[in-house]
Nucleic acid binder design. Structure first.
Lengths: 234, 234
DNA sequence: CGTGTGATTGACGCCTGTCAACGTCTGTGG
DNA sequence: CCACAGACGTTGACAGGCGTCAATCACACG
């Protein structure tokens, strides 16, 4: 099945973008490339929902996906983002549980679906791939642990400053210095774990203090050093 | 090297307690069993420190270990506990980074050290083991993600109630209904992500409301249903 | 018996969430 | 072309949860 205007070639993903597939043997990659189903989704479209059973995982070829949980009172909590070369939903398949997160496109995306059996088969038969995948998951786990400490101990102000820097590092900036990723105030709040109003107020403060420049959803970091100082403040 | 009064046999760990090693072949397990170094630590002793380089991982044979990060102002954040049959420190070895957490014994423990090379070798050569290990890490990742949502959205009160129930489920209760795991107020605070005084005040409240019974560090859950209601309150 | 660690309680204040009102922008349909 | 709805952004008022500081108590241990 194919839902995409063009079909990405796995060789691009794996070789050019250092994805987890870089250790696959030629025939394994061919199998993945042959078997995969491709999709092209616009911003706002949901890839999978919390609680649903997924029998495979997705590899992002283009765009940005937000992975989030729905918590108390329906409020969302963004766990992480996924972009080109990264994989999502592997956790549910491997631990054989229903999805514990939802995934929504926030920047028009192209991505491929690969079955869980294929993933398990690759893990069982290719030790280098296994090791690479484990490293990847361990990395994600380490980040999650750091975030727990942050969110439990730092003020909303510090966390927001941290997120801005993090977004710059992960997604980069345009020629004019504006963060490439575009998020609503509510989405920012759902990363930081606070109320939309708080994000707005703090962004305004940052602007007043000449730390950032605001133009709607466009955010430009003016003084990264002072922002970092805020992150480490307590 | 051996620091322990007795040397645990890996066959006990793996077969009796469903550890991640259950899929090892006889000769692999023998290798681990032969190579491992055993230690016996009392409460309070540190197994490894955040920032140190570890070239192996530990398998817990007895006791309870707390895994924690040191955050803002030296305040600790407990990430998880490890008990019999569980493994710790594998993340650092596999992602080839320095440890991002510290590990301290909170109930007299016996545990074994196994080198990172052995772990990598097992992963590369035994697909079933790899898969099992991945499932384990995915489980931990899922829990971390849930905790991020909790800590970001729930009140301290709800989180404390949740932790009490969690501790009961993970470590069980004695014949008299008292939680088996014994924690200081500060340790409880470091799980929940709050101040020691807040934990004390809330525990007192719970006691006043006949939800729990307190006797120093001994905590007995009297009304689990109402505690659960507090968890889901908002 | 002095010392130290942990537990408790009270006072105080600020950060932050909630509620409400209003402005802005975009797309849609008449 | 305009009216309208709906999503998003902004600002102000307000209360209360929770962190911080400080003093005191309890208990174990050398």
């Amino acid at each position: 099945m194919n839902n995409s205007s063009y079909i990405p070639d796995c060789n691009d993903c794996s070789l050019l973008y250092h994805s987890v597939f870089k250790h696959l043997k030629k025939e394994e990659l061919d199998r993945v490339n042959y078997e995969k189903e491709c999709y092209s989704y616009k911003r706002g479209k949901i890839i999978y929902n919390e609680g649903s059973r997924i029998n495979g995982f997705y590899c992002i070829n283009k765009g940005i996906i937000k992975i989030y949980k729905t918590g108390v009172d329906g409020k969302g909590q963004i766990i992480r983002f996924a972009k080109r070369g990264e994989i999502i939903a592997y956790r549910s398949v491997l631990s054989n549980e229903v999805a514990c997160t939802s995934a929504k496109v926030i920047e028009d995306a192209v991505f491929c679906f690969i079955s869980g059996e294929t993933l398990v088969s690759l893990i069982k038969n290719n030790g280098d791939f296994s090791l690479e995948l484990i490293k990847l998951i361990c990395l994600e786990l380490g980040e999650a642990n750091s975030y727990i400490t942050d969110i439990a101990q730092k003020t909303v102000r510090a966390r927001l400053a941290e997120i801005l820097i993090h977004l710059k590092n992960e997604f980069g900036v345009n020629d004019d210095g504006v963060l490439k990723i575009s998020l609503t105030r509510q989405e920012l709040a759902n990363i930081v774990g606070t109320a939309t109003e708080s994000v707005i107020r703090l962004l305004s403060e940052f602007k007043t203090d000449s730390l950032i420049e605001l133009n709607g959803r466009q955010i430009k970091i003016l003084d990264e050093q002072r922002l970092i100082r805020i992150v480490n403040l307590f």
